[in-house]
Amino acid sequence: MVVFEKTKGLTENELHYCPGCTHGIIHRLVAECLEELGVLGKTIGVASVGCSVFSYNYFNCDMIQAAHGRAPAVATGAKRANPDNVVFTYQGDGDLAAIGTAETVHSAARSENITVIFVNNAIYGMTGGQMAPTTLPNQVTQTSPYGRDVTVVGYPVKVCEMLSQVDGASYLERVAVNNVANIRKAKKAIMRAFKNQIEGKGFSLVEVLSTCPTNWGLSPKEALSWLNENMEKYYPLGVYKDKYKEEK
C-alpha cells in the first residue's frame, strides 16, 4: 500500500529551486490537488516572473508564462476564453504585491473565477535577495542592507487583509508550509480554493508563507523556524474571507 508517492500533477523535470526552498512543497500541493480533482487535462496554469518563473516546466498541464505582475490579467483572459477550464496563477510576493498590485486587486474586485497561489517569502529570490513589499520591518536584504526602515520605505503589505476588503474576493486564506501540520492545512486551503473555482464561486487566493534559505542567509532548517518566529507574527495564518461558507 502506497502511503506517499509523487503526484502525476508534476512533470518529471527536476525543480531548479535552492535546497530546502519550500516552493517545491507548494508546487506539489497544487499539483496533488489538480490530480485529485481530476482536472489536469483542462487546467491552464499561468506562471509569473520570479523564482517560480519556471513553473511552466513543472506543472503537468498547459501553461502560459506571463509578464511580471500580469498573471492575473492573463488568467482573466484565459478563463474568459474557456470558462470551463480551471485557471490558476502561481505568483511570488514581488510579482503579486509590487508590480502586479493593480492586477491582483482588480481580478479580485471582478471576482474573476480563478485561483491565485501567492507565495510570500518576504524577498525577491530570483534576482538575489532584494527587499520585497512583504519584507518585514528591520529585515536585512540586499536593498535594505541596514534592515527595512519603515520610516523610510514604509510597511509590508498584508495581502489577505487588504483583499478581504474587496467585495469580489470569495475565499482568502493564509497558510504556511514550514512543518507537516501546516502543510496539511495548506493543502486543504488550496483544495478549497480550486473547488471554489470549479463551483463558479469567484476569486480565490491562498497566500502561502514560504522560506528562502539562500537569501535569508539561513540553513533550510533554520529558515523553517525563522518563518514561524517572524513571518507568522506579522502575517497571522487563517481564513480572511470565505463568502460562501458564511452563507451556509
Binding site: 506517499f4 517545491g24 512543497i25 507537516v180
Partner: peptide, 12 residues
C-alpha cells in the same frame, strides 16, 4: 515525504 520539496521520497 510530505516535507520534501523535491518529491524524492516514496513511502509504502
Amino acid at each position: 515525504a510530505i516535507m520534501c520539496p523535491d518529491t524524492v521520497i516514496k513511502v509504502e
